[in-house]
Amino acid sequence: MTYKVLFCLYFILVFFSTPDTPCIGQSSADYFEEEEPIDPEQKLKVDSMAMEKIRDLSKYIAIIGSKNTPFSEANRVVSRALELFAEGSVIGVSSLDKEEVKQYEIKKYFERLMALSYDQVKIQWFDIQYISDLEMTPDGKYVGVVTIYQKFEGLQGDALIYKDVTKKDITIYVERKIMQVEGTHVNFWDVLLGDIVVSETVL
């Protein structure tokens, strides 16, 4: 129900009262500027590094999910895929008919994918993605979210066993690092994937 009717009734009730309850709001002047915003050129570089990792993840998912991939190879690819992620990352999966978002540790998610074993997995991308601004976290890293849309098809023989179209909101952690190359300090950006929410869409 809209707030309007309830709020109006409530407002009439309390209009003349002077509640003693503590103030929960904040002054509109309470805002904070980021100390070190990333400049646009650097941001484009980081965006393309993040997209590269996400494309790698997609390739790995297709390999892991395919029955044609030998078990040992699938395990090797799972290890490669896990290297893309920050420690402790999870995947939340939501479907249109269920309200809850089910969460899996990233490794568990890949193991479930291996167990499904389709003869073939096809992942197609929509050519649109959305990359958020990067925000600084209290420990000085940056965090952003990349949204992509994919069509997933699992086939057995020529028969389509499962398909879905999902929106994937993927956390990216970005850290400025320094390494020494032949005695000189070189700055670089390190990008890791983090928690992912996979939502089924009506598209």
Partner: peptide
């Protein structure tokens, strides 16, 4: 909320 240099 702000903490250190960033937000949360």
């Amino acid at each position: 909320e702000r903490e250190n240099k960033g937000t949360k």
